Simulated assay, not measured.
Amino acid sequence: MHARHCAYQIASKQIFDFTHYNYCFHSKMTNLVQPKRLAAFDFDNTVVFGNTDTVVRELVTPEVPPNVQELVKTEGWTRYMEEIFRLLHEKKITREKILERIRCIREVPGFVRLLKSLHQANFDLIIISDSNSEFIREWTQAHNISNIFTQIFTNPAQFLDNGLLTIKPYHHQTECKLSAENLCKGKILENFIATREVDDFIKYENVVYVGDGTNDICPVMRLSENDVGCARKGYGMKRILEKNKTKLTAKSKLIYWNNGFDLHEQLQEHFKYGDLPDQRFESPTCPV
């Protein structure tokens, strides 16, 4: 019998050596872990050229009442959008009219092709966004990319039978001061990575985070030296990171981008994956 073993016999009874059993189990699980790469994306002003909430808010005419506008300061953006959706319902703005607005938001140039190229290069793709589930589902389905995402994290929303769009916060947190109370993107990213390793035996050897706004700073600050943070030029995340270099120091490589084409070039140079797909992607038909 080998000196080291996971079980042994004493007086014809099977006795487990749990210390070595744990060693054997850990070794087996380590062998099962698959190394992969992860790319996480914000949605508004990152994937789509605009903000899904403000595009829909424009349907409120003539203007948003002051008492509703005040909710942004007193109760936060999600509560504010809840009232915006109620106003739209009162004004008989239909579900189809709202979703048409969402479908017709342009992509950030080259972004659909970028997402498809990363998917083809075996990156797992996720979205972490302060938009909502109805808007992201509608846009990604209309642009034929809903099936390339491993998971989407956002505020849950649904249309009721009477046509009212309802929305709830993704979660409630007060620990992270870089994030809104309803959505800490860094916490979501870390939890997703940990869950994938424990539940699915997938370990991400590289993580890419792509965003534009101030609420995208938190996940970039949690990246490691093996990872890449991507801040869009001309938006809040880049400005704040550059202004606060001593207080907000990222461990990861930082790259700055304008659109999906130049972001692809920089990521391709770093990771050495394939070229952008050659085919054109049809956009949904929208009113002129």
Score class of each variant (00 low, 15 high):
H2C: 03
A3G: 13
H5V: 10
H5E: 11
H5C: 12
A7S: 09
A7C: 11
Y8W: 04
Q9C: 05
S12R: 01
K13W: 00
K13E: 04
Q14C: 00
D17E: 14
F18Y: 03
Y21C: 13
N22L: 15
S27E: 12
S27W: 02
T30S: 14
Q34N: 09
A39R: 02
F41M: 01
D44L: 05
N51C: 15
T52E: 06
T52H: 05
T52M: 12
D53K: 08
R57G: 09
R57F: 00
E63D: 13
V64Q: 07
P65I: 07
P66W: 08
N67W: 07
E70H: 08
L71K: 15
V72G: 08
W77I: 12
T78L: 12
E82C: 07
E82Y: 02
E83L: 06
E83K: 13
E83R: 13
I84M: 06
F85W: 03
R86W: 06
L88G: 02
H89G: 05
H89A: 09
E90F: 01
E90M: 05
R95M: 12
R95N: 09
K97N: 11
C104I: 02
I105V: 15
R106S: 15
V108F: 11
F111I: 05
R113G: 03
R113D: 02
L114K: 00
L115N: 00
S117P: 01
S117A: 08
S131L: 04
F135G: 12
R137K: 15
W139R: 05
F149G: 00
T150H: 09
Q151M: 09
A157I: 12
F159M: 11
L165M: 12
L165K: 10
T166N: 10
K168M: 09
T174D: 07
T174H: 08
T174S: 15
C176K: 09
C176Y: 04
S179T: 07
C184M: 11
C184K: 14
K185R: 13
T195E: 09
T195G: 05
R196H: 07
R196E: 15
R196G: 05
D200G: 04
F201T: 10
Y204T: 10
V208Y: 00
V210G: 04
G213K: 02
T214P: 07
N215F: 03
C218R: 07
C218I: 03
P219V: 04
V220N: 11
N226G: 08
A231Q: 04
R232K: 13
K233V: 13
Y235V: 08
G236V: 08
K238C: 05
I240Q: 13
E242I: 03
E242P: 03
K245H: 03
K245I: 06
K251G: 10
S252G: 04
N258Q: 14
N259Q: 06
G260K: 04
L267T: 04
L267F: 01
L267K: 03
H270R: 14
K272S: 15
G274F: 00
E282W: 02
S283I: 06
